[in-house]
Design a protein around this nucleic acid. Structure first.
Lengths: 277, 277
DNA sequence: TATACTAATGACTAATCGGTCATTTGTCAA
DNA sequence: TTGACAAATGACCGATTAGTCATTAGTATA
């Protein structure tokens, strides 16, 4: 488990420097100080490493954003906090951003393409949720356009973090973009993105979350957990997935216990979705 | 000369399908119906092909945009025409857009990285020119932010063309984005992107920091400074660059004085780098 | 037809790739 | 100290790569 982490970290460095195709397994193992054979004990193929990395780093990003959006911050600061967290993430994980937001290869491998679209859809859902909280019915026609604008702001301004290390005032940036978002939301009258269009671009990943796949995901995470509270919480939740009896507050509490552990935020996120929390 | 064209076209198809690294010269020559040797009569290496392609296709794109911007269209339709031409280009050249806006490899080869930045700078100049024509002095503070927003809109909405072939109403899209741009330009009050910042991103400053260039940078900033404390701090620092005598804590203090001024954070950052603080 | 020249070929090389597996090393209990 | 087992190694494999070059095909002139 620790070996996997090491490989993913060093591989991220190399991919961000050279790209995926241009980086050899040899180079990765050299930087890790392990042998080639050891690499293949952790990952069946080089592609499997890439898939694991996409899952690991994009899960982190999506859950980070969702956490801010679902937090009960007051309406007048939630946009600022949203942007602050986004760009804080870009600043802290510039390397992974470089890889996962610019690697063409990711999009030529179908399996990964679908995965990345799926995470993009999750991100879009979070943004839409935030907009609905902020503006309720005021936006019904232009909701998706505002979302596209927000994603555009992210893409455009994030280059400042990804391609240079100029020191930037995150607060000022967040305030500036929050204002722009507010302005767009309040004044836009000509919509272009329809719900139908969003559905079309999101197409391949509408699979419902099956109980089986969720149980599998939970089992996978139960393996590596040590702290008793978290372990028991997750076991209880697993049981609840099969036989739901607890009330929502209790479920939410158990999920929050899980969410505290760094690498378990994703499984928490998925369980919360399963119970509609 | 015609041969070169053929190779670039077929290579573009393959790069857009598989990416640059994953495409072999053999594949390119097969699709062209020529031999491997013939390829190397047109291009010395595979990299040279890529460089030629970047130049060819990005030049086309940049000049297309500039032509619209410099045309003497009336103010009330120029934004719509601008967006229409942009997305028409994305629609017609989805393949090259896929390659040149998403290929990570381009950014790992230094020569290409600089070239792409240079074209991006040209594009930025065109947009700024258009904004100046449209709004004259009304925008002086937020000009660069509006430019970043426009580029964000392009990035976000262009995905509709690049990753799917859904039939879209270009006129409606252009109108919608023109309105958004107008709204942003008219209402934004909190700027973030300064001219200084634009300059910095235009010149990737990986080069070692020479004493001379630093002194030049300081002189440049001394011109516009008024507050006596900041001014004296910067003058002292300039003297220290030539004759270092102060201790690090004193230098750090002086640098922090500078950093307080909004547009001087970069020079503070550079001086700190110079003194290893 | 003979000559001279360029354009085009594809078998070839040396290097590197992802991936395998017989072997060695390290770590336990007995 | 021994033996059993898992972890780790790196030489090795077949496949593929970018790039070369002796050879051939095509063409224009004499």
């Amino acid at each position: 488990m620790l070996k996997k982490q090491l490989i993913m970290e060093k591989a991220l460095e190399l991919f961000s420097e050279q790209g995926f195709e241009a980086t050899s397994v040899q180079q990765i193992t050299e930087r890790c100080g392990i042998s080639k054979g050891a690499f293949y004990l952790s990952f069946k193929t080089k592609d499997e490493l890439l898939i694991s990395m996409v899952e690991y780093y994009l899960q982190q990003f999506v859950t980070d954003v969702d956490q801010v959006v679902r937090s009960s911050l007051s309406k007048d600061i939630i946009l600022v906090e949203f942007y602050k967290s986004i760009f804080q993430a870009f600043k802290n994980h510039a390397a992974s951003a470089r890889v996962f937001f610019n690697e063409k290869v990711l999009l030529t491998k179908k399996e990964l393409f679908q995965k990345i679209i799926a995470y993009d859809v999750e991100m879009s859902k979070s943004i839409i949720y935030m907009l609905e909280q902020l503006y309720q019915d005021e936006l019904h026609e232009t909701k998706y356009d505002v979302m596209y604008c927000i994603k555009g702001f992210m893409k455009s301004y994030s280059e400042l973090f990804i391609f240079s290390d100029i020191p930037l005032d995150l607060d000022q940036l967040a305030k500036s973009l929050a204002e722009k978002t507010e302005i767009i939301a309040r004044h836009t009258t000509i919509p272009f993105i329809t719900e139908e269009l969003v559905q079309l671009t999101a197409k391949p990943c509408n699979e419902e979350l099956s109980q089986e796949s969720l149980l599998g995901l939970i089992d996978q995470h139960l393996d590596g957990i040590e702290d008793t509270i978290e372990r028991e919480s997750l076991e209880l939740l697993k049981y609840q997935v099969e036989n739901p009896t607890y009330s929502k507050p209790i479920l939410k509490g158990l999920i929050e216990n899980i969410r505290l552990k760094r690498d378990y935020r994703w499984v928490a996120y998925v369980i919360a979705k399963y119970f509609n929390i």
